[in-house]
């Protein structure tokens, strides 16, 4: 099968998934009562009046996690190609990847020491 033809079932599946999602959300939209009033439409804050908007600045730690994820996940993607060719690449491949993983581990250690993994 050609490389693209093998994705044909995926296309059918995703199309089906989109139809299901649109159908369910559409069904939800048209059925059921609808009696809105200003109090009911307020954001839920455990019964207290909300202060300000929810779209505001948040803890920087979440950005650091995203940054670390990007670094480590991209490096993981490199490893997949080595893993499936482990046998033909042999010892040379192993040594190279061991060095690569060492650099990765040093990076993790650095992030750790710098306090990027801390959540107080």
């Amino acid at each position: 099968m050609s490389p693209l033809a093998q994705y044909f079932p995926i296309a059918v599946l995703v199309l089906f998934a989109i139809v299901v999602a649109v159908f369910l959300i559409g069904l939800d939209h048209f059925l059921g009562p609808r009696q809105p009033n200003p109090t009911k439409l307020e954001p839920y804050e455990c019964g207290i009046l909300g202060v300000g908007t929810a779209r505001q600045r948040f803890k920087v730690g979440f950005y650091i996690v995203a940054l670390l994820f990007l670094l480590f996940d991209v490096e993981t993607v490199f490893l997949y190609t080595w893993v499936v060719l482990f046998m033909p690449l042999g010892l040379i491949g192993f040594v190279e990847v061991a060095l690569f993983l060492f650099v990765l581990a040093v990076g993790l250690y650095y992030a750790w020491r710098k306090g990027a993994l801390e959540w107080e």
Partner: peptide, 12 residues
Amino acid sequence: KFITKEKVVPAG
């Protein structure tokens, strides 16, 4: 119940 429930879309 899920289908026939009232839909609340918050103001913001």
